[in-house]
């Protein structure tokens, strides 16, 4: 009697775990089924090679490239901002800073990641863009630059925290050997510790890229909604995510081709983040416990 009760409980718990699998299957099913009917109308070749994306205009084109360059541009700016700062923070906290300092600063940095992204979007549009316009006069009021920069600030803690963990996990003997040879902290940090922890640092950067690609509100607010094929950071661009927002806010009838475009855009986004996440997973598995 007691045993059946235990079995029922275990079953209920296992079912809760299964929900997460159903979520994944649901995401894949939704994206694949809706984009499947999209690709029955629009050929995959057009989708990947057409340089115009105008599903909401009368002259319709379905080339994802402008959305990809928009996404690529904002992501690249964000990573170029966050990577040097994030790695410098990680090196400083693990190799230079006193222990107490490190302990209290790590959670403080997490605050940057706790701020809602719509707030960052407001910041990019109303503070950063006007400020940058003083320096770059022909900067549009919507542009990839300030959206990317602000997104970079948001993902600093992602890179700094994971990279610091990787540096912190290195055995002490490695550093002591370097100091014993007369190296400075800087030399030890960048010639010994960072190369030794490189897999962890690379993982942090890949995850940050995945995060930046999927980020929505900052780019929807500050980068604009013009799907133009450009790599000029001063221009307004539209990312994949911003496009999904644009269509969702409008009155696109359910089941129409324009409605299905958000799923075609969504599956493109999903593939990118899925591949990046799995690469990071693979690196983590492969290089884990190198020093144990």
């Amino acid at each position: 009697m007691k045993n059946t009760g235990e079995k029922i409980i275990e079953g209920a718990l296992a079912f809760s775990g299964l929900i997460t699998i159903l979520t994944t299957l649901g995401i894949i099913w939704v994206l694949v089924s809706e984009s499947f009917s999209f690709f029955q109308v629009v050929s995959v070749t057009d989708f990947l090679t057409d340089t115009e994306w105008t599903p909401l205009f009368t002259q319709k084109h379905y080339g994802i490239l402008p959305l990809l360059t928009g996404t690529f541009l904002t992501t690249a700016i964000a990573i170029l901002t966050a990577m040097p700062i994030g790695i410098a923070i990680a090196v400083y906290l693990s190799e230079y800073a006193p222990k107490n300092f490190r302990k209290s600063l790590k959670p403080a940095l997490e605050v940057l990641a706790a701020v809602p992204t719509v707030v960052y979007g407001f910041f990019a549009l109303t503070v950063v863009t006007p400020f940058l316009q003083n320096i770059i006069p022909d900067l549009g009021s919507f542009n990839a630059l300030s959206a990317g920069l602000v997104m970079g600030i948001m993902i600093i803690p992602m890179i700094s925290s994971l990279s610091e963990d990787a540096l912190h996990a290195l055995p002490k003997s490695l550093r002591e050997a370097s100091y014993g040879m007369g190296a400075t902290r800087f030399q030890t940090a960048f010639k010994v510790a960072v190369p030794a922890a490189s897999s962890g640092i690379i993982v942090s950067i890949i995850l940050a890229v995945a995060r930046a690609i999927g980020e929505t509100m900052i780019v929807a607010i500050a980068a604009g909604q013009q799907p133009i094929l450009t790599l000029d950071p001063r221009d307004a661009v539209e990312t994949i995510t911003a496009y999904i927002v644009q269509v969702s806010l409008g009155d696109v009838p359910h089941g129409s081709l324009a409605y299905k475009t958000i799923f075609a855009a969504g599956i493109t986004l999903f593939i990118f983040t899925f591949v990046l996440n799995n690469i990071s997973f693979w690196i983590k598995k492969k290089y884990q416990e190198k020093y144990d």
């Binding site: 296992a14 775990g17 299964l18 997460t20 699998i21 979520t23 994944t24 649901g26 995401i27 939704v30 994206l31 809706e34 995850l207 995945a210 690609i213 999927g214 980020e215 929505t216 995510t241 999904i244 927002v245 969702s248 958000i262 799923f263 969504g266 986004l269 999903f270 983040t273 899925f274 990046l276 996440n277 799995n278 997973f281």
Partner: peptide, 26 residues
């Protein structure tokens, strides 16, 4: 089952929030 769920959760944590919106919509 547990190890599949575990890998799956790591993957779900990396899915952009807007994709959850598409799931919820359908």
């Amino acid at each position: 089952l547990a190890s599949i769920i575990e890998i799956n959760i790591a993957n779900l944590a990396g899915v952009p929030s807007i994709i959850y919106g598409l799931l919820g919509l359908e």
